[in-house]
Amino acid sequence: MKILRTKTAVIGLICGWLLLFGVVPILMLLTSSFLSQDAAGFYRLPFSLHSYRQLFLDPGYLEVMLRSLKLAALTTLICLSAGYPFAWFTARFSKRQRLVILILLMIPFWTNSLVRTYAIRMVLGTHGLLNKLLLATGLIDSPLRLLYTDTAVLLGLFYLMLPFMILPLYANLEKLDYRLVEAAHDLGAGPLQIFRRVIVPLSLPGIFAGCIMVFVPTMGLFYVASLLGGARQLLIGNLIQQQFLNARNWPLGSATSVMLILLMTVMLAGYALIMRRLTARGQRS
């Protein structure tokens, strides 16, 4: 009897929490994206598709969304190309070395990301370290304008998101059976062939997990674009922030967020599909 009561209480607590602060808010967000703008009360009836129409027909919004997608894709690509070798080498190190490298990776990760963005800004400024170095080595004659450019935003996003790429990749590559690589080598495969035909297929789950962890959240990091980018709206996050906190157009802001949710859902579904296909292939062989 008592067990049953504890059980109900425990399950009720977590279910209630997730329902109230996880599911209901998303449903409310979805609903508000179909309502009309109201200057005083944030949103009001009647239902309308106005926000979505605005989102897709207004060239300004479309441009921000495309730019945001491009920037997020570039960030993901850079994180992957730096994170993959990082995770691969780390997974091949001795246990002690691995621990040191992971701790070194975690320390910045545990520091407030706004503080780190601010730190990046000091490096990229006109009188920042990078310009000083370039001037001192004689590579440039006058300071480069690095800050408040898309490049600066990209560098900042890479800085913040890299661990999110490395950790899932590392978790995957650490488990990779190195004997398979040796077997491929014994069978006469070259390094490139081994990489393409053995290592990449085996680490696909890690690659996808890392890309999902980087790609969608990147588009929300409005403060990086505000601190490092110019006046232009760069990320979907900036658009959402502006609609919710400045322009007070909640339905439009909600509709923009719904786009992000859709993107996330598609990517997660793709991930699930790939995982299922991989396990199916594993069982067949």
């Binding site: 602060f21 967000l29 959240p217 979907i236 909640w250 909600s254 967020s257 949710i261």
Partner: peptide
């Protein structure tokens, strides 16, 4: 329930932020 938790973990902060804001105001 476990799936919901996982989704909550993977969801970008901005979505959580907006939806909670809508909830609190609502």
């Amino acid at each position: 329930l476990q799936g919901t938790l996982m989704t909550l973990m993977m969801a970008p902060d901005i979505i959580l932020a907006i939806s909670l804001l809508v909830l609190f105001v609502g």
